[in-house]
Design a protein around this nucleic acid. Sequence first.
RNA 1: GGCGACGUACCCAAGUGGCUUAAGGGGAAGGUCUGCAAAACCUUUAUUCAUCGGUUCGAAUCCGAUCGUCGCCUCCA
Length: 471
Amino acid sequence: MDIKFFNTLGREKQAFKPIQPGKAGLYTCGPTVYDYQHIGNFRTFLFEDILKRVLLYNGYEVTHIMNITDVGHLVSDGDTGEDKMEKGSARTGMTVWEISEFYTKFFMDDAKLLNILPPARYTKATEYIQEQIDLIKCLDDKGYAYVTGDGVYFDTSKLTDYGKLARLDIEGLEEGTRIEFSGEKKNKTDFALWKFSPKDTKRQMEWDSPWGKGFPGWHAECSAMSKKFLGDTFDIHCGGIDHIPVHHTNEIAQSEACNGKPFVHYWLHGAFLEEESGKMSKSQGEFLRLQLLIYKGYSPMDYRYLCLGTHYRKRLLFSWELLDQSKAVLGRLKQNIIKFKDLSDSSDLSDSSDLKAKYQNDFTESVNDDLNMPQALAVLWGVVRDENLNSKTKLELIFDFDRVLGLGLDKTEEEKPIDAPAEIMELVNQRLAAKKAKDFKLADELRAKVKDMGYDIVDKKDGTEVKSIRN
RNA sequence: GGCGACGUACCCAAGUGGCUUAAGGGGAAGGUCUGCAAAACCUUUAUUCAUCGGUUCGAAUCCGAUCGUCGCCUCCA
């Protein structure tokens, strides 16, 4: 079955045709490790994870590269040479290298909690400086670069199709410009390939280059590292929707100018997670981290399910109410799985392999249609509710679907009754006695009392269980 | 100023010309079970897709206008 992707290049759904049969090269723009990643960042990483899982589900061998940007993102265009890493260093008192390590670790921990499959390789920008210099040299040799007082720039007027990905209206851009250009750039869209270290300050991160001491511009890394690990031309490149007009546009310019070949066949971009006040942004102070959700009693999987509920190209408005909904749904799904597990031994219905195949087909059709996860979830619920499927088959289908959903459903286990403190158990036993004596008034009072102390009493057929109340 | 996206029930959301006089989930209401709860299960919950006009045998889906919301053009997932 074909997989269809909405290709930003062309703005239409296209059937995926890999360069090498059965294989897919995938490059996804990773985090800039100058701060924590917020759940909005992770929405994009989750979308990319789903994409990769869909390719794997279809039997592709996926080579996935994700960069870690630990240098080179300038705070603003007219800045003083400080980049985000150096700025973070000044803020925290750590060296830039310590900062990089610190936030990279937090990023990877959160990614793991969200059940995001790790890439074949994480590539740190600072570990591939030579490759970036080689790229810039290549552009310089071919006449695409020029040197100014503060760096080496790419001359975008040398390309006839600059901005094709974003469908940039260069003239409109010029007219509507809100920022003043003080530098020596020849064109508004020209961008830095290499920035020189400021003369009066010693940067923590700087390298020698044929043009002078400094650091690479923030687009160079992706072009250089994708070339190294995936080749001049590869299959799929992803990122947030915000990367279309600048970062990805410039990557294309660099790579295609140097290599003389098309850079990427399919560009996929994820829409933003927004709050009531607009999009989540690190530069606007407070932001939501996964750890905060966990602190508030939500599971990382609750958030993953939340993201699954909306198509990746549609913007998503985050709210706690929405997260509550997701938590409720996932809880119900797991309850069902536990029920099916109990029933699956006593094969309640004869198998219906035709029906199973139909569901499998429906699911594949949904995820292969530009990652239509809301549709895929509807198929999942169809399986859960279908009276003509036996429990064993339902479980097989659910776990099969979870290879794409990544909700860790195969690890679903009944919440173990916990060992409550003795004082709680004492009250629980008193209630049980009251219940047996049919003194329900006292029993209910005792249950309320226990609840106030943070525990739930649940009566089961074969006894009473105590659970701690989270949140 | 330029570029672009979006507006489907109380909430989230799929569907983008006839298979759908609109999937799925949450919530709510009623029911089964239980001393009662909780959980689970069953039933019900949009003649209607921002508004107005047009195209068509046929539109939520195409075209136009209007209103509204938002993003980008500056670092950004």
